[in-house]
C-alpha cells in the first residue's frame, strides 16, 4: 500500500507489558495484510505526550478523554477472543484516517 505510513499508538498501564504484546501482534497482522504502519507504545497516562503523528490509539486499559483520533479498547490480542473483529476495527479506522 502506497503513501505515508500510518502510526498506531498502543497504550497500556505500564507501557512495557501488555502493550508490547499488542504492538507486536498488531504490527505483524497489519504487515501481513499489506499495510505500511509504524507502531509506538506508551503508558495510558502519557498518551497526550505521544500523540504526534498518531492516526489511531489501541489500548488494553481504560482511556478517557478526546485525543482527536479513534480509540480502540480491546483485550483481543492478549486473550485471543474477538481478535479478527478487533483487527477489522483497526483496519477500518486506518482506512478512514486522514492522510
Amino acid at each position: 500500500m502506497a503513501g505515508k505510513p500510518k502510526t498506531i499508538l498502543v497504550a497500556c498501564g505500564t507501557g512495557i507489558a501488555t502493550s508490547t504484546v499488542v504492538a507486536n501482534l498488531v504490527e505483524e497482522a497489519l504487515r501481513d495484510r499489506g499495510f505500511n504502519i509504524h507502531v509506538k507504545q506508551c503508558k495510558v497516562a502519557e498518551v497526550q505526550a505521544h500523540l504526534d503523528g498518531v492516526d489511531l490509539i489501541v489500548t488494553t486499559t481504560q482511556l478517557s478523554g478526546n485525543f482527536g483520533v479513534p480509540i480502540i479498547k480491546t483485550l483481543a490480542f492478549l486473550t485471543g477472543i474477538g481478535k479478527e473483529d478487533a483487527l477489522k476495527q483497526i483496519i477500518d479506522a486506518l482506512n478512514t484516517a486522514k492522510v
Partner: peptide, 11 residues
C-alpha cells in the same frame, strides 16, 4: 521492551 519473547509466550 526487553522481554518481548516472554510476553508473547505468556499471551
Amino acid at each position: 521492551k526487553a522481554q518481548v519473547e516472554m510476553l508473547m509466550k505468556v499471551s
